[in-house]
């Protein structure tokens, strides 16, 4: 049992750097993985010769931040999805359950329409995400323990903020901005830079750490609050902390990349099939798998149709829907 989950971790762990190297090399100008490794090494202080300035800049300033952001967003969303599925005991829970994506779009749209420039967008999106999460908490009051109420409050808050977004978009009546908003809502990693990479590294790492420290609590909570309680855990405290953590992490990721769908819903299920349901192994497996998945989805999104880039959210949904249908079929097939 232990050896199998270790194997999954080792495989995913090896797959991640390899995927990253190949993905950085892929694009309109193809660069062999070894050259990619060499120029990255040179930047990190290794005594290797960097690529010529133009190619070096493509690797270091354009593609590497983008691939790293894809990995971070994939990992973070997968971890948040895993945690929320366990806490709400709902296999359909995803990171946007708590209204975070709807709130982020409202914030982003407000910034775009009011015109605060590029730096303001992530800040606006994050503020909106936290406003929506606050709204969910207000709706919930003390009844944090009812998974049904959590889901319903999330739906209500999402509806409210989606309506606000539509209202702002319609009122602004600017075709160019509306297009930009629509593109942002679908999720894209095109705006990746070293700032967004650093912010997402900090939040995702911290979030993963908090969740890992509560791995046993999650195992017990997945089995119901009462069971968790009689096993010596305090469900209310844990739920509060984990809802807060996932909301902040998701908020930061959505602020950097828009609302990329299906990663946080599907990857946890895939990871559970591979690594089992014990969260101490499941959480890192889920993170690695989410990172690898989004790296490849984004590489496909930016290279499949030549210069015309697809929003990565479109691609994850196109891949995600059939995969999810297969998953549902499998679930109902087992008695």
């Amino acid at each position: 049992m232990l050896s199998r989950s270790t194997l999954v971790l080792v495989c995913c762990g090896a797959l991640l750097p390899l995927s990253a190297l190949v993905a950085v090399g892929t694009g309109s100008a193809d660069i062999p993985p070894l050259d990619v490794a060499r120029t990255i090494g040179a930047h990190l202080g290794a005594p290797w010769e960097a690529l010529p300035p133009l190619r070096d800049s493509i690797v270091w300033n354009l593609r590497l931040p983008r691939v790293l952001l894809a990995a971070l967003v994939g990992a973070g969303l997968a971890v948040c999805g895993t945690v929320l599925q366990a806490v709400t005991r709902n296999p359909l829970a995803d990171p946007y359950l708590l209204g975070v994506s709807a709130g982020a779009s409202t914030g982003a749209v407000l910034v775009l329409v009011l015109g605060f420039g590029a730096l303001g967008l992530p800040v606006g999106a994050f503020t909106g995400a936290m406003a929506a999460f606050g709204c969910v908490l207000l709706l919930l009051g003390r009844s944090l323990g009812s998974a049904t109420k959590v889901v319903l409050s999330g739906v209500v808050a999402s509806q409210l903020f989606s309506a606000l977004t539509s209202l702002v978009v319609v009122r602004s009546g600017d075709a160019e901005r509306t297009r930009a908003v629509t593109f942002w809502l679908l999720g894209s990693l095109a705006s990746a830079d070293w700032t967004s990479v650093s912010v997402c590294t900090a939040t995702t790492t911290a979030g993963l750490l908090v969740c890992l420290l509560h791995a046993r609590h999650l195992d017990a909570l997945a089995f119901g609050r009462e069971t968790a309680s009689t096993l010596g855990f305090s469900p209310h405290r844990t739920e509060m902390l984990l809802y807060g953590t996932t909301a902040v992490v998701t908020g930061a990721l959505v602020a950097a990349s828009g609302a990329i769908g299906f990663v946080g819903l599907l990857v946890p299920h895939a990871a559970r099939m591979l690594a089992g349901a014990a969260h101490r192994v499941l959480l890192p497996s889920s993170a690695l798998l989410g990172a690898v998945f989004l790296i490849w989805a984004d590489t496909a999104a930016r290279s499949l149709f030549g210069a015309q880039e697809l929003p990565v959210g479109v691609l994850t949904a196109l891949l995600g829907v059939p995969a999810f249908a297969a998953l549902l079929r499998r679930r109902t097939a087992t008695p």
């Binding site: 195992d219 997945a222 089995f223 119901g224 559970r272």
Partner: peptide, 9 residues
């Protein structure tokens, strides 16, 4: 009744 649908062994 312990309600849980998760694929735990």
């Amino acid at each position: 009744e312990t309600v849980s649908d998760l694929d735990t062994t």
